[in-house]
Design a protein around this nucleic acid. Structure first.
Lengths: 187, 187
DNA sequence: GTCTATAGGGCGATAGAC
DNA sequence: GTCTATCGCCCTATAGAC
């Protein structure tokens, strides 16, 4: 792995662990094993590096989710697979945590990939729910977009509650609760 | 309002806006109108000041929620009042955002009020749901604790999605979705 | 490409005058 | 109680040698 690559990967890790405000160029250099000169040769500065890192993290999450959404099984089964996938719960969502970061939200460029990721995820889940409703798998009264938004929110909030409690079990409880509500709407 | 009070209130605001990592003693002093000496006279340092601020924010949220939980109406009505209460959505949850902060979670003292707040909130909602189930207001198959956790998570995640989208409407959608799932479980 | 040196400013805290 | 002065260190970035 070349230095440029190591810089991006180290930035992804640090953004995940400490957020944008909590991540310094110095820390990135130390973790990546690259020096000042190397970093500023490949990137203009902290924000440009962060942009590359955030974009890559969002793309990763999108690919993983899409693989589950387009996999085998009924709609409810596919959503269950997605919701119950093994996660690094106590580290939180690598993209979601950036939405809390004031300096990320204040910069239109940095914010764009975050906004797009959640827009895509919610929309894709809404499509699935709609498909499940059309197939008679789900309650006809169910609102696909609102339900999709609630499911994504339950995941993101699950991360927060798990971190607050210091236990991944709370995340699992949130998913259980959301799925419990959804699946009693199966027909 | 004396200086000590202003220091605590300014810290609450800054923690809400920028988190612990993003809040400096200097910024607190500027916002409160207190100088270095004043701040370090009343508090040992940044973390002690944050502790006072976090505790107060958690107490506030608890009191507001309890007023709604113990108000008039059926269980579903009271939960709806709580979920739909007017909020500063784009600013996020003053306590929930701290769960993302690495330096808060790393300090047992700072983390305690965050953990306790969410423990209380989830437990209290679970009691309500249990009450509603006993009264025949909700589906007998509903798991009170898991559902309560999912509802709190939907709120916390709603804040995140709204910030990511730059619009409070997304928060409302998440609440709609959660309530939609819950209320079709009414009997 | 990568390194070291350096810069100007902020960080979190302490000291001591008033 | 509150102020100003000062500290040692880190922040983000630039310059220029190799």
């Amino acid at each position: 792995m070349d230095k440029r690559e190591r810089l991006i990967e180290s930035t992804r890790e640090l953004l995940w662990e400490r957020g944008y405000v909590g991540t310094s160029p110095k820390a990135i250099q130390e973790r990546s094993g690259a020096g000042q000169g190397s970093m500023y040769h490949h990137f203009q500065g902290k924000s440009e590096l962060a942009l590359a890192a955030i974009g890559r993290s969002a793309d990763d999450l999108r690919a993983k989710a899409e693989a589950e959404f387009s996999g085998p099984g009924s709609v409810v089964e596919r959503i269950t697979v997605y919701l119950r996938r093994e996660r690094d719960v106590l580290k939180g969502c690598p993209v979601g945590r950036l939405a809390q970061d004031p300096d990320v939200m204040a910069d239109a460029e940095l914010r764009k990939p975050v906004e797009e990721y959640f827009g895509w995820l919610t929309g894709r889940l809404a499509e699935l729910l709609d498909e499940g409703r059309a197939a008679g798998e789900l309650d006809q009264a169910l609102d696909p977009l609102a339900t999709a938004t609630a499911l994504v929110a339950a995941l993101q909030g699950g991360y927060i509650l798990a971190r607050a409690a210091g236990s991944p079990d709370v995340f699992a409880k949130a998913v259980d609760g959301a799925l419990g509500l959804l699946t009693t709407k199966e027909t």
